[in-house]
Simulated assay, not measured.
Amino acid sequence: MTKKFSSLLLLLCLSLQALHAQKLLPQDEKALRRSQDTLQKVADQMLHGLNDNIKQNALEAFIPKLVRALKTNNSFYFPFDSLQTISIKYPKDSTFRIFTWLQETDNGFFQHHGAIQLNTPDGSLKLFALIDSSDAIVNRDTITSNKAWYGCLYYNIVQTHFFNQEYYTLLGWDGNNPRSQKKLLEMLTFKNGQPVFGGPYFSFEEDTVKRPTQNRFFLEYKKEAAVMLNFSADMDEIVFDHLISEINEPSKKFTYVPDMDYEAFKWKGGKWVHIDKIFHDALPNGKPPIPVPLDMKSKDNTHIQSEEEVQAQKAAEAAAQQPATKKKPGKKQ
């Protein structure tokens, strides 16, 4: 047997082993479906329970049940798609997935919970619990671990690449409190196999007014407002609403609303570079379009003009606005 043939045979065997490792056995899939039914009932109580005690008891029941289900070999390939109140997001390369969910307290504040499950070669469980520490984080523009996580509900993951490293930009929503809500961007990377949240990846170096690079980007706004922050595949940018205070008090984030203008981040050189205005024909301050005001003094309301007269008047007005051109001096011909 030649060395080349032996190498090909070994590669084929390894490929078959990897394919087999990715299969979820029928009996395991059946057991996970039963677990999913139980988890969904408990998850509903976490979100819709009548009071904080019921929600907390549901949480304390949900977490060990979820971990027990995930310990099933190759559970990564079970989608848990019936867990309608749990957000489960995957990057393009499917190297991991993130579970996140929320609890709203009786007084209108939000707490978040989650976990990262790695896609392991042998199908065994590798899980990182996400501990919501947002209330204790004094400086939110910082780099954290999964044990000091800025809690939110993730609704999208944008995977980018730079210099042989993968970057995962997480887009999240935080219900925050009774007066405001938040959306955020943060980078997830892995260092020595451990998740790292945040980093100097949000740059404002191309803005007219320079700002320091941020480790995490936030939008905080009025509770009732609808604010967009998401990745546009057509534009290849993360696009978001430009916000202003509706009462002209910028320090009060709970008064911020969209003004019909848009900003963006573009992936350049291993970071997201801010674009302060992406539609330069946007209307100022969200004002509706209006025609050029009529000069009522020159308007003759006693005469109904024909179409030919209207066009002739427009042509005359346009000609009057053109600058006069001077002839160059020269000899008479």
Rank of each mutant, 00 (worst) to 15 (best):
K23V: 07
D132R: 09
V239R: 11
D295P: 06
I278T: 06
A58E: 01
A115P: 00
T85S: 13
A233N: 12
Q56N: 09
I88K: 11
R216L: 04
Y90G: 08
K223P: 01
R34I: 13
N107L: 10
I131V: 14
V273A: 02
S75D: 08
N53V: 11
K65A: 15
I143A: 02
T105S: 14
Q22V: 04
H242R: 11
D52C: 02
D276A: 11
Q321N: 12
M1D: 08
L59Y: 15
D28I: 05
F163L: 09
P289C: 05
M296A: 12
T95F: 11
F128Q: 01
S232T: 05
I290G: 13
P91E: 07
R97P: 01
P212Q: 10
L127E: 11
T213E: 04
P79D: 07
D28L: 01
P293Q: 12
G151N: 02
Q36P: 09
A264Q: 09
T38N: 06
A31W: 06
T213F: 01
L229W: 02
T325Q: 14
A312E: 13
N164D: 13
K299M: 14
L171V: 00
K326H: 08
Y90E: 11
H113E: 04
E206K: 12
K327V: 07
K253P: 00
Q111K: 13
L16I: 09
L50T: 13
L50N: 09
M296L: 15
F109I: 03
D93A: 05
L118M: 15
P121C: 04
V227K: 02
N301S: 13
F217Q: 03
T120A: 06
Q45V: 09
K222Y: 09
L171C: 01
K297R: 09
D28M: 00
P258D: 08
E309Q: 15
L11K: 07
F204A: 02
R216M: 03
P291Q: 10
K89D: 12
W272A: 02
D300H: 10
K314E: 14
D281S: 08
A148V: 10
H274A: 07
L14F: 11
F96W: 04
V138R: 15
V42S: 04
F110S: 03
I88T: 08
M46E: 07
G193F: 00
I304Q: 14
K297C: 03
Q313T: 13
R216A: 00
L170A: 06
L127V: 04
Q181I: 04
F76D: 00
D174H: 11
N164Y: 12
N107C: 05
V310F: 12
L130Y: 00
H112E: 07
L243V: 03
A319E: 14
V273Q: 06
L8G: 01
Q22W: 01
K253Y: 12
T208A: 09
G175V: 08
G198V: 08
R179Y: 07
Q84E: 12
I116C: 02
A21G: 04
Y167V: 07
A312K: 08
T189D: 00
S232R: 05
T208K: 05
K266A: 11
R140F: 11
I131M: 09
E205A: 14
Q27I: 14
L19T: 06
N215A: 04
T2I: 00
P26W: 11
Q311I: 10
D281M: 08
Q56G: 04
